[in-house]
Design a protein around this nucleic acid. Structure first.
Lengths: 147, 147
DNA sequence: GTTACAGTTTACGTTAACGTCATTTTTCGC
DNA sequence: GCGAAAAATGACGTTAACGTAAACTGTAAC
């Protein structure tokens, strides 16, 4: 039985590498760190280095943002993903929190379906109107413009 | 054949009614109007009155927000929902725009599924750790805290 | 070693999306 | 017709989420 599984020389990312990959600024990444959302290690002369997990973390943050979560909310989510395993009680609490989030996500899915329906029905209306126009009909709507 | 289908006395909402229903402030609603997102009619002494369509509009705005769209982006979406039927060319353009949005929405759905997977996998890890704890095992993770 | 580029910290600036008065009108119940 | 509640308008304040500039340090190629 080998004493250690060999730490497997993990891939390291510089801040600008990640910035380029996710199309955000380095400032943004440092900002997330200020807010406690990521905590990369420093190498030699005080430079940040990101590993696989940090990268996944960043991905999660951006994904959360795309769904309208604030950084603070994301921090909570991550707090859950980050408990770094302590006490059983803590873990149970985190599991409960996770359930809440899952429920939220499922509701979001339903809402997305609704949004899709909204747009589809607008589409239908437009197509109908278009066909009417092509048949030479002329009719005016409410004519209220939001300019 | 009756000359007119009778305009069907539509339900009217005051600004505070809508604010209460959607749990936002009246200021917010007026703000959306400033930005051209809604344009309610005024009744008698200059007061805003919202009809069914305005209400649906507001709903759409809030839904959009929950998905991280900015008001400006939502305005675009709505621009589409609002063309108020002019020329056939315009309509075709709007239809194309709608297709883009639909594609976006479908991608969002995929992402939501990914987010769900993220959380589910965290959950699995936590449960595994919990069971280990209950069997009396003790092991420490990386122990990096983002405080 | 030096030069040029990438990274670090500090600090002030900016923008979107409202919040919060203060003041003036309207509306509504009596 | 009147007082209280609701609405309108205008103006300034606030917060989150970065942008931007300056001044310094580390790192990589030659």
């Amino acid at each position: 039985m080998p004493s250690k599984p060999a730490p497997d020389r993990e891939r390291r990312y510089s801040i600008s590498e990640l910035a380029a990959e996710f199309e955000i600024s380095t400032r943004t990444i440092r900002f997330y760190e200020e807010k406690g959302l990521i905590s990369p290690r420093r190498s030699g002369g005080n430079q940040r280095y990101y590993d696989k997990r940090d990268r996944a973390r960043l991905k999660l943050i951006l994904r959360g943002k795309r769904f309208g979560y604030s950084l603070e909310e994301i921090a909570e989510m991550i707090g859950m993903a980050d408990v770094d395993l302590d006490e059983a009680g803590q873990i149970r609490r985190s599991l409960a929190y996770g359930e809440t989030k899952l429920a939220e996500i499922r509701q979001r899915m339903d809402e997305l379906r609704l949004l899709e329906q909204d747009i589809l029905s607008v589409k239908a209306r437009l197509i109908a109107r278009l066909e009417q126009l092509e048949r030479g009909g002329a009719k005016v709507g409410r004519g209220r413009q939001g300019k």
